Amino acid sequence: MASQTALDHRQCPSLEISSIHVSDPEKNQHQLLALENEVDYSQRAQWLRAALLGANDGLVSVASLMMGIGAVKTEVKSMLLAGFAGLVAGACSMAIGEFVSVYTQRDIEVAQMKRVQARADGSDEETERAEIPNPAQAAMASALAFSAGAVVPLVGSAFIRNYRVRLGVVVALVSMMLVAFGVAGAVLGRTPVVKSCARVVIGGWMAMALTFGLTKLIVSGGLEM
């Protein structure tokens, strides 16, 4: 009889939950609340990756471009023009790349669903109800995320006339935003905060330092701008 009861519990978990509530209602109330509040963080991975990648790419790319121009030009106008050109070019590139990538994924998924339905002799209604990626939405989201990150160094340095202060402000703003991105990614994805922040901040610093240093080196080697 005991073995039969154990078998029933394995086959129907709800019986086990009911019996546990009878034995210890307060304890199992917390367990049920924990189960209800449990989040599958892997579900967030795709949109979180795309949003953070776009914003981080815009921030670091435009800031590095402005630092590279700032290595050889002291005028604020030159840095702003370079940054604005980088914002437009980068946003367009992200949008086009995401559109092509998601459209390819969409075609593959639709073709796979049609093959499955053909084997199962299903109807087209299942294909219409299935959730398939939207290339236009993905392209717009990527462009907006890139632009949101890119506008930070542009706005932050637009009204600073002093050359050295301007460069320092760009580095400081980028560093703060990178920390914010690292914290946001860690909190939403339930990953270590320090490791996440260190990864994005060090990567951003390396990009700006390399762009600044290599541009300075090329110009000092005799290339006129």
Rank of each mutant, 00 (worst) to 15 (best):
K114G: 00
V193G: 09
A184Q: 09
A198G: 08
E125N: 01
E109W: 03
V155G: 00
R119F: 05
V88A: 09
S123D: 08
I132F: 10
V165T: 15
R166T: 14
V151P: 04
A141L: 08
R199Y: 02
G122C: 01
D124A: 13
A172Q: 07
V116G: 01
V152E: 07
S175W: 12
Q117C: 04
A143Y: 00
A184C: 07
A141C: 06
T191C: 09
S157T: 15
A130Q: 09
S142V: 03
V152C: 08
P153D: 04
A139N: 06
R115L: 15
T104R: 06
A95N: 10
M140F: 01
V174S: 06
A150I: 01
F159R: 01
G168Q: 12
A186D: 05
G122A: 04
A150W: 02
V183W: 12
G182Q: 07
K114D: 06
A111M: 02
V170L: 15
V194H: 04
R115C: 03
M113C: 08
S101D: 11
Q105M: 00
M176A: 15
Q105A: 11
S157C: 13
S142F: 02
L144W: 02
A158Y: 15
R161F: 10
V100W: 09
F99I: 01
A143V: 07
P153N: 05
I132Q: 05
F159D: 03
S123R: 03
L178P: 07
G185T: 05
V187R: 14
A172H: 04
T191E: 07
D124C: 02
M177T: 15
E126G: 04
F99A: 15
R119C: 01
R161P: 01
A95R: 00
A145K: 07
R106I: 00
F146S: 10
P192I: 08
Q105C: 05
I108C: 03
L144Q: 05
